[in-house]
Design a protein around this nucleic acid. Structure first.
Lengths: 207, 207
DNA sequence: CGGTACCGTTAGTGAACGTTAACTACTCCC
DNA sequence: GGGAGTAGTTAACGTTCACTAACGGTACCG
């Protein structure tokens, strides 16, 4: 054993604490000395591991977006390979996103809050990954709910992301019974939202 | 006439631009010189109107939370006074929140992003207003969906706020047909989410 | 004309911050 | 043991930033 996570390297330690601090007080609200202190070293010591403060944020954001996209692609491929119905694939995407939102709350916060603090190059990369992830969802959603126009489906996907990413606002842990119950509730909310968008009656309300 | 909005006072002008800038680049990412430039005066001139940068953020956040709560209370009271069904009151709350999210996007962003940059006193006030607003919704939701436990209902409300507040992510304006269509779509999504949480089958999934 | 608010300006101050420089200790390997 | 590489230290630098001080113009009012 111990082949999995033998010891969190200093790098990973720094990234984890930086994520927490950035999420709590914002990128500009946290100093390098604080990040250093959180891992037991002092300020400039961080520069042995990263070229700068922004590089930490960049690595975090690229990592998140990449993992979300990779996970989503895997689930979509598995589903289609096994001949699953689109609805099952959507279910799997939702489940994956919920796992992520519940297990990596600081990253979820950073993900849509601190993107604009990146240099052009990194920001474009992250945006590209995010867009691919959204388009992955849009494709699946449109298979399940063919009556939705593409722009509508995209808006729905963004809205459902907002819904699923609301976990950080659910007070500190313990406001809900447990992780599984929270996950199940979020899952039902997300599915219900798509159903509602699809529209039982089809017609919108008055303009 | 002209008793309503004769001319946007310098104060209001500053608040509006500050809201936009804070939403775009974060509280710490915007300098007072920038805010001043946005209204045509330079940096320290702002101090004729506000005691400090933080006071602007405080006034913005207290204003938003207060207006949301006031509007929500009004709609709830109107509905109950007119003997409306709880479902209609919930509909009205959703509509009000959507109007706010679509018309004051910068404020919606600030509302849950920059709260922690406030001093203790102001932050507690804003949190109190926010909590009252949430509880207002929870009460109504539980009347419409009595099977939901209180903690579940609260989680649903937070999640639906996340959904409705996703408007800033819907690309720049124009990604959707129009304001009315977007509002209608969000409305259906929110209603669907509550329906989904309520659960057609009632049983959660495996724990 | 003289006084008084009001609203704005430029120059400056002290603190905080990201980053670099110079130096020290530890480990590994020949 | 000696040299190299790694990971950390403290001190310092340059910049940025919120805020203050001192000053000027303009409108109103007697």
């Amino acid at each position: 054993m111990s082949t999995q996570a033998p010891a969190p390297s200093r790098r990973e330690q720094i990234l984890k604490e930086a994520a927490r601090l950035f999420a709590e007080r914002g990128f500009h609200g946290v100093g390098v000395d604080e990040i250093g202190a959180a891992v037991g070293i002092s300020g400039p010591g961080l520069y042995r591991h990263f070229p700068g403060k922004e590089a930490m944020l960049a690595e975090l954001l690229v990592g998140i977006s990449g993992r979300l996209l990779t996970g989503g692609k895997r689930r979509a491929a598995e589903g289609e390979g096994a001949g699953c119905a689109p609805a099952q694939v959507l279910d799997s995407l939702i489940e994956g996103h919920i796992d992520f939102a519940l297990d990596d709350r600081p990253l979820i916060i950073l993900h849509d809050r601190e993107l604009d603090r990146l240099r052009d190059t990194d920001r474009k990369l992250v945006r590209s990954l995010q867009r691919q992830y959204v388009e992955l969802w849009v494709e699946v959603v449109r298979k399940v709910y063919p009556r939705l126009a593409e722009s509508e489906a995209r808006a729905c996907v963004h809205a459902v992301f907002g819904l699923l990413n609301s976990t950080p606002h659910l007070g500190r842990p313990g406001a809900l019974p447990g992780r599984a119950a929270t996950a199940a509730l979020l899952h039902r909310l997300a599915l219900g939202a798509f159903e509602g968008a699809h529209g039982v009656d089809g017609s919108g309300q008055a303009g």
